[in-house]
Amino acid sequence: MMNTTTAIKAESRNLDFFYSNGHRALKSINMPLYENKITALIGPSGCGKSTFLRCFNRMHDLYPGNKYQGQIIMHPDNTNILEAGVDPIEVRMRISMVFQKPNPFPKTIFENVAYGLRVRDEKNKRTIADKVEEALKGAALWNEVKDRLNDLAFNLSGGQQQRLCIARALATDPEIMLFDEPTSALDPIATANIEELMSGLKEKLTILVVTHNMQQAARVSDYTAYMYLGELMEYGDTDTIFTRPTRKETEDYITGKFG
């Protein structure tokens, strides 16, 4: 499965992260994200996997006192997105995110998906309508909502809301998409929908997903990283990690002896 010609889309180099209370949540993480691949982050809760994910779109900048050390380099332009001179907004325009719980805005279905375009000052109604349709199709939601685009997003079911949030994130053509336990609040059918969706999405972009569900990681991802106490314990292609982990701790976690 490992394809040596696959390009690296982004990589973290010696990444440390400190919360405002001084807690060092990430310890010198080195890890690549391969282009058009899905990378899964697994590990017990509190291991830093969500913290790591949220470094990629500088979400930690919203709360004062948090501190990054090290680099996350984005290719092909070799920008270190953690650098002080790089605006977090610029990073978020390139890397979008889907959250643990669906968080649609108190707007219509259409306006939710169009949000990113409006934020980017897109004024052309035709372009917006086209992009919204494309994104909703990409998120496999179009057929269910095409007749009620002006309904409030809150009226959708949980699984539909989460797909709406994926459509919202897709509409702006991001280079990378981050998924923070995207199915933890959903039922098994909705979960299966979203997993299928992710597999389709990687044709167009690069995905990093946090999951506490090992089967999910095994099902959807190409690469898997096992984190524990803020450290990257093991990283490799998913088949290898799940069948022949090199470290005892990884094996214990995967087989359910721990965590």
Partner: peptide, 17 residues
């Protein structure tokens, strides 16, 4: 809820937006 703000910031919105 903060999650709603995070959703907006994650789309590249500024504070004002």
């Amino acid at each position: 809820p903060m999650s709603m703000r995070e959703g907006s910031y994650a789309m590249g919105a500024t504070r004002f937006q």
